[in-house]
Write a protein that binds this DNA or RNA. Structure first.
Lengths: 140, 140
DNA sequence: CTTGACTCCGTAGTAGGGTACAGGGTGCAC
DNA sequence: GTGCACCCTGTACCCTACTACGGAGTCAAG
């Protein structure tokens, strides 16, 4: 059962020490146990969690949303139905994001391949990418 | 050639009037032409652009990144090669985001389907989702 | 030709997400 | 048994992306 200091997990998870304390204050990570001196003691789990947070943020989730995602696993001792429905809602959101990103990806691909040819290329695939007036399902 | 006031496009693009002026200050949208009175006059294009921005933000792009995405189309009169390489880099980023989201999606699906069974379900698919110690390609 | 909704500009304030000290204790290598 | 890196708490500050306001001009319906 390897344990780590805050500096060690900060390095492993590629986040700042202050950030970890900040997340702890927000309740985003479980408050770690302490040595008699007051030093925080972290487990491997914390590294995983921090990395999850870092990447989820990069996907446009707020800390609040990330917290909700993470909590899904803990509440499952309670009302199973609710976990299921919350998970389902998140899945819908996630799928919408994926679809949007795929549109951007296609637009970028078009742009990149249209370019080397020549000419002014007046049509802008990027703008069309997330344009709900296209075949995009018009969700808010 | 329909034209719109700032309030009209704000409503259409579902953003605030102040936000549009803010984006203009940042150079994120093209400075619109003006009536003699000073009132801004927007075209359909502006609505599309604003909607693009709104959705791209939701995908975790910063305004700076969005600006870069949007600029890809304008520079193509200049150095075509650079547009291509910038587009390619963006494509890589976008693909990484899609992959991450798909991992989250799978994890949520697993979670949702594992739940109704019973038991404590100790394993947390969510945390594994974005864990680079799994088969995830370890990108920063 | 008035009135109420809308627009202008500039500046200031807010929320989210950190980041940086200051002032002090801890751990361990030498 | 001391030095230096590291940790503690708390407060203050920073950046991004808005959002609100004040004071004044504009537009168009009645």
């Amino acid at each position: 059962m390897t344990s780590y200091t805050i500096g060690q997990i900060a390095q492993q998870a590629e986040v700042g020490v202050e950030t970890i304390r900040y997340y702890e204050r927000l309740g985003l990570i479980v408050a770690p146990s302490r040595r008699p001196s007051g030093y925080r003691v972290f487990s491997e789990e914390a590294v995983r969690r921090l990395r999850f947070i870092r990447r989820a943020k990069h996907l446009g989730f707020s800390l609040r949303e990330i917290s909700e995602l993470l909590e899904l696993r803990f509440h499952d001792g309670g009302s199973c139905k609710e976990v299921r429905s919350r998970a389902s809602n998140k899945i819908i959101e996630v799928e919408a994001k994926i679809a949007d990103l795929q549109r951007i990806q296609r637009a970028l691909t078009t742009l990149a391949s249209a370019c080397p040819g020549s000419g002014p290329a007046a049509a802008c695939p990027i703008l069309d990418a997330l344009d709900p007036t296209e075949e995009t399902d018009g969700q808010a």
